[in-house]
């Protein structure tokens, strides 16, 4: 475990805390894409298949349970909680996210490091995570005003993968880890998709003005 990965995991955890804070305190999920949340549940389910078969550390197992539990909890809140589900921007969350799942499955079947169930599903989860934010970004562009917590959530979610890329550079240099195309490219694509958002988020933060994405 290196500092970049720890910072990355903490940033990821913080993004989920911010989202839960927003949903629980404001009792609203306005501006949050249910589709992105559902994609994240699939990402965690297919990535953490080895949860009960492989033990790396207490930290690793605990964090997997937290990520699985919170992502499923958030989808439950947005789908079934009597108050929260009314605030879901249903007719704006229109991204065809099933295509993202299909594309990721096809790509994982074509490009993977080993053709076994765990590896292919793990690869699938990397490809899917890279594009999982798209429905959320599209929804943000449609939202007239983006509330602070939603902006902070997306920023932290994007920042965590950028930190993971630094972690891979560190592991490559210091732990003479081999270069791994699949996580690297997926992570770079994922972070690149946030570039536009990062620009407007930082600009709004510097100018002390409301976050607004160009339509």
């Amino acid at each position: 475990m290196n500092l970049f990965r720890l910072l990355g995991d903490m940033t990821h955890l913080l993004s989920i805390v911010v989202l839960l804070l927003k949903i629980r305190t404001v009792k609203s999920c306005a501006g949050i894409s249910l589709k992105t949340q559902e994609l994240y549940v699939i990402v965690f389910l297919t990535r953490y298949l080895d949860l009960f078969t492989k033990y790396y550390s207490v930290y690793n197992t605990a964090m997997k349970l937290v990520f699985l539990g919170t992502s499923i909890g958030i989808v439950w809140y947005m789908r079934y909680h009597k108050v929260v589900k009314q605030t879901y921007s249903k007719d704006e969350d229109t991204f065809k996210h099933y295509f993202l799942i299909l594309l990721s499955i096809i790509l994982a079947l074509l490009i993977h490091r080993a053709f076994d169930v765990i590896e292919v599903l793990w690869t699938f989860s990397l490809y899917l995570e890279a594009v999982a934010i798209l429905p959320q970004l599209v929804l943000l562009q449609k939202s007239r005003n983006i509330d602070t917590l939603t902006g902070d959530y997306v920023f932290l979610l994007g920042a965590y993968r950028a930190l993971y890329i630094l972690n891979w550079v560190y592991r490559f240099l210091m732990e003479n880890h081999k270069f791994r195309w699949i996580p690297w490219i997926s992570g770079l694509v994922q972070t690149a998709l946030y570039a536009d958002f990062f620009y407007y988020y930082i600009k709004s933060w510097k100018n002390r003005e409301k976050l607004k994405l160009p339509a």
Binding site: K54, M63, R113, R180
Partner: peptide
């Protein structure tokens, strides 16, 4: 895990 894999990550 094999050296090359990142399965020990989240």
């Amino acid at each position: 895990p094999p050296k090359g894999s990142f399965h020990d990550e989240l």
